[in-house]
Design a protein around this nucleic acid. Structure first.
Lengths: 125, 125
DNA sequence: CAACTGTTATGCATATAATATAACAGTATA
DNA sequence: TATACTGTTATATTATATGCATAACAGTTG
């Protein structure tokens, strides 16, 4: 697994970790039932406290993405990824609808919105 | 003016206030050159510290929405259409950033997002 | 038993948010 | 000019979130 975190980011370290692991699960880089890196190992790898990693894992477990067993480790929970992806698509659709609403009211062209879209999606690529 | 704030919200009180006042300015509930409630009056009304209200007003002045004169009060700045447009562009930018976050985590391609974008923006045209 | 897993408890450091209190300064007007 | 409004500034305190270090404890496996 390849996790990159940034101390200077405004998003907390543990959030960056949960996001990276969620992404790995969605992309199937981490498969069902597969074991995650141990909290201490990952902490050492990222040069941060294991408590920060544990906080991330706790959040992932809370949301049902992983299962943790004391003494054994943390494992990717069985999931219906297709269903989850559908949910996320709907979430995105909702945002786009809001954008259209705002753009219409403020008389902002779809070209301008496309420009914003381009800038944000193409940065750091 | 009708400002409702929530202590349990994750957005800071002063941000809630700036947002509410911006909205009041956009909707013309607060007109050009109109005086805003005094920091102490509004603080009393909302049962919060006047320092929190002042922080909100400072932010609004920083962004050019209001002008403050010591001894007199705070007043809605002469309307600036460019400012309004900038504000709305920022709002849209915020939504696009959220979309990028969700798409990244859920392994949704920018092509898929573009498709959603097309569908929503081209319907009823 | 040894070497891994995760768990828990304390304490410390920093930043942000919000508060209370007090004193100070400008403006308008009775 | 007194006073009653405006905003301003300074200091101290509290709470919460984030992150770290250290230590001890507990379960699993070879």
């Amino acid at each position: 697994m390849n996790i990159i975190i940034s101390n200077s980011s405004s998003t907390p370290l543990y959030e960056q970790i949960t996001q990276a692991i969620k992404q790995a699960i969605f992309s199937n880089e981490l498969k069902e039932e597969e074991m995650l890196p141990s909290v201490r190992w990952l902490a050492n790898e990222l040069k941060i406290s294991f408590l920060t990693v544990k906080k991330a894992y706790d959040e992932l477990e809370q949301e049902g993405f992983i299962k943790t067993v004391q003494g054994k480790g943390s494992f990717v929970a069985p999931k219906n990824l297709e269903l989850l992806r559908e949910e996320k698509l709907k979430e995105i659709q909702g945002y786009v609808e809001k954008i259209k609403e705002v753009a219409t009211i403020a008389d902002i062209s779809s070209e301008d919105v496309k420009e914003i879209f381009k800038i944000i999606f193409e940065e750091e690529k």
